[in-house]
Nucleic acid binder design. Structure first.
Lengths: 222, 222
DNA sequence: GCATTTATTTGCGTATGCATTAAAAAATGC
DNA sequence: GCATTTTTTAATGCATACGCAAATAAATGC
């Protein structure tokens, strides 16, 4: 049941986002404003605002007279997004390591790592993905740069749809957590350069894996 | 004379942007939607869309019932923006240096550098700033990552207003162009690590200068 | 006088209608 | 038949109207 306390245009943003992620609004599909308005049972005005917002976040594109297109992601797009994430998250890791956080401050980060271990032990990929998301967003939060937080959230959204597809195509990310622990330790021990370098390599590696996977499976768009 | 071929909401974005940069809409000031609609001689609808767009780009904030606030930038904000620029531009420099560009491809970059030299010789700060902008945006373009281009453009907008203020408070950036030339050469010679490292230091230095300047002059908001 | 309630104003969020104009369909010429 | 023009359709961009709720002012009680 939709929260009545939200404005229609806020609800429209939420609803459209989740329908994009679920695939109900498929990548590459076109939709008229009036069609979306009917779908969400509201007038065109709030959907139009929502569509502008989601457009500015790169999830869709407005093509006058042709409807809004849910943007598909090509392997090149994925590479772009991963590069942005790599640079900004590495910066966050570096900053986090300079911030003299206590272990209590880093509890959330540590917990996410433990949950990834647990998820891997149970071969629960969804749980792993969820914990991995939490690790990365917590890392960015600790970097204390609101603009980086916003950008990373935006880019993470863009890859989210793709990851649900690719996640099940690759081997269990067992080694991945070693990196996470190393980053955690570097932050805890106050080694900015180490935190930065390791996280950067971690992300670059993830990008390489993904790009290779997309190539091998001939996935042109997601 | 406003271009009649643009839609009203596009014109609204342009007009509001330029009035924000010119200071006509001052940082920290509040404006009702209807006030802006009157100012731009159009209805609230396109103004509202423009305001949503500019809001998502961080130039202003929507505060229901209080009007849209033109966002002031604190020294902390400046630091955030510079950190984003540092990371993403450095990445662009690295990528540009990996791309095997010919000298012809780099002509625009070289020209911007020469113009900065010329501007410094004439002590023409405005011309210098314009050429500096061109250098940085061309560098990013050569990095071939559309998302980075968009983000950098957005962040550059945010500091633009501040720079017009601070530009005249500091000594002529004579040494700055040495870095630019070094980055240029690293790109031309295909040395990604060098291009990245130098540009990174260059930006970090610029940030340090600016932050110090803001502190010295007790500028809390711009 | 001060606090609390009530009345009034007013800015925003949303719905709706309409003119514009791009795209699709139909009609015409060759 | 095919190309070109004309007609029709319909999606958008914008203006306008209106109800709601927040902010402010006024009124009431103490």
């Amino acid at each position: 049941m939709p929260d009545k306390s939200l404005s229609s245009s806020q609800r429209a943003v939420q609803e459209l986002r989740s329908r994009i992620f679920s695939g109900e609004l498929a990548a590459g599909s076109d939709h008229l404003e009036s069609e979306l308005a009917d779908l969400l049972e509201m007038s065109r005005t709030p959907v139009r605002e929502a569509v502008l917002t989601l457009g500015s976040q790169g999830l869709l594109e407005l093509r006058p007279r042709k409807g809004v297109r849910i943007l598909p992601l090509s392997p090149e797009d994925m590479a772009e997004v991963y590069d942005v994430l790599t640079e900004l998250e590495s910066h966050a890791a570096e900053r986090a390591a300079s911030a003299n956080y206590s272990e209590a401050d880093l509890a959330e980060l540590a917990q996410a790592i433990d949950e990834m271990d647990a998820a891997i032990a149970k071969s629960d990929l969804d749980a792993w993905a969820e914990a991995d998301d939490r690790f990365h967003s917590e890392l960015v939060r600790l970097g204390r740069n609101s603009r980086i937080e916003a950008i990373v959230a935006m880019m993470s959204d863009q890859v989210r749809r793709a990851r649900t597809t690719t996640l099940f195509m690759r081997p269990l990310p067992t080694k991945s957590n070693e990196d996470h622990r190393a980053v955690y330790q570097a932050i805890r021990d106050g080694n900015p350069d180490t935190a930065r370098t390791i996280h950067r390599k971690h992300r670059q590696h993830a990008k390489a894996i993904l790009v290779e996977l997309l190539g091998k499976h001939r996935l042109r768009y997601l």
